[in-house]
Computed example of a mutant assay.
Amino acid sequence: MANKPAYSIADQIALLKHRGMLFRNEADAPHFLENISYYRLKGYWWDLQTDRNTHNLHANTYFEDIIERYNFDRQLRLILFDAIERIEIALRTKMIHHLSMAYGGLWYLDSTLFENTQITLRDGTIKTIHQNTVEELQKEFNRSQEIFIKDHRNRYPGQDADAWKIMETASFGTLSKLYKAMKNQLPEKAFIAQEMGLNLHSELSSWLESINYVRNIIAHHSRLWSRTMVKTPRHNLNNPKGQWFINPLTPVQSKKPFLIITSMIYLCNYVTPGHQIKSKILTLFNSNPNIQIYKLGFLNNWRNEPLWTQP
């Protein structure tokens, strides 16, 4: 198939108009398309197409409304990144503290603390999940330009760093994998889950995987709007310690960002009491009354759930 020709900004606007896009102030459109690419914006009008083949749009689809969706999504992602930072730092701190106190500073290298589950890598190599995760952790350590990490490398060349050093360089994904790989009978694995408000480590593992998935979306400035989540956290909790859902979730609610966002707020209630994450989200919603938040899974009686209504 021959490559399509590149479209100028004027051509992009003409194409949008051909497909039914309306403009309240067409003179402003070039500015947006010069700074936000056509295909990045396309995700925000995708659900407004009448035909996925012709890409024609519903009547009364305005370019300015698409920009409003885009800005709303951006503001939501910034709020959620604040929540993720709090959760990640708390998880890292608890893993360092509990496991170092129990097993020493090099606990992360002790294979007896981890399940022996094996994976096959793309090149055909077979490793345990623990072994592969530690290798990723070491790469993150080697790349770090933190002063205390560079000092360690200079003073102790070739020596393994204690957990309170190396774990500070770990990504959320590495932390999540390392936590999940711990043997289930380790009391410290349960302690960490309980301190974050959950009774089962399997629930926390599920939540961490889902939150890391959202973290990666946000880190790449990608779209949360109307996205179906590839990773979804467990929502049928075992006697949750804090406010959780009192009504069953619909499939849409569980597959859209709503469930993961709610789980973030739940965790923040434990690791950083007095946070403003929920109030910022509600303020954002109230400030954007034209935004269809049901596209994010906020539908039915979500406003009546105690976690969303009570301080």
Rank of each mutant, 00 (worst) to 15 (best):
R215M: 03
H235G: 02
E135M: 09
L204I: 03
D65T: 07
S263P: 04
E34T: 09
N132T: 00
A2T: 12
L78K: 13
P257G: 09
D51Y: 09
M21W: 04
E115S: 15
M1V: 13
R215C: 02
N56L: 06
H275T: 02
R19D: 04
M229I: 03
T120Q: 15
L198Q: 09
K189W: 07
D162M: 08
R234D: 06
I129M: 10
T125P: 02
K177M: 05
N300R: 14
T228D: 14
K256V: 00
Q12P: 00
H55T: 11
Q185E: 14
I211L: 09
K127F: 01
L267V: 05
A163L: 06
N236P: 00
Y108W: 07
E136I: 00
L299H: 13
L204F: 08
S279C: 04
K94V: 00
P248K: 13
T93Q: 08
H201C: 10
Y44K: 04
T117M: 13
K127Y: 04
D162Q: 12
Q292A: 11
V134L: 09
R227F: 02
N304H: 12
I265S: 09
Y103I: 02
Y7Q: 14
N300V: 02
Y294K: 12
L224R: 06
G173C: 09
W244V: 04
R303S: 07
S202I: 02
I211S: 04
P233N: 11
Y38W: 12
I260C: 12
R74L: 10
M196T: 03
N53E: 14
R19W: 00
L267F: 09
R40N: 07
L296N: 00
Q12K: 15
K17P: 06
N132H: 15
N236K: 14
G173D: 10
H201I: 01
S100Q: 08
L99Q: 05
T283D: 10
H220F: 12
A193H: 11
K150P: 05
H18V: 04
P157W: 11
M229E: 08
E188F: 00
L41Y: 10
K177P: 01
W308F: 14
Y39W: 15
S210A: 15
K180Y: 05
P157H: 11
A29F: 02
A59I: 07
L76A: 02
Q118A: 10
T309C: 08
I166Y: 08
A163P: 09
F258Y: 15
N184A: 14
M95K: 05
W107L: 02
F63Q: 05
H98R: 12
N132D: 15
M167F: 15
E136R: 13
T169V: 05
R40F: 07
T283C: 03
D110H: 11
N269F: 00
P257Q: 09
P248E: 09
E195G: 01
Q75C: 08
T117S: 14
H18P: 00
Y270C: 00
Q118T: 13
G297S: 09
T283N: 12
A10S: 15
N60H: 13
N238K: 12
E88N: 10
I96Q: 05
S37K: 12
E88F: 08
R40L: 04
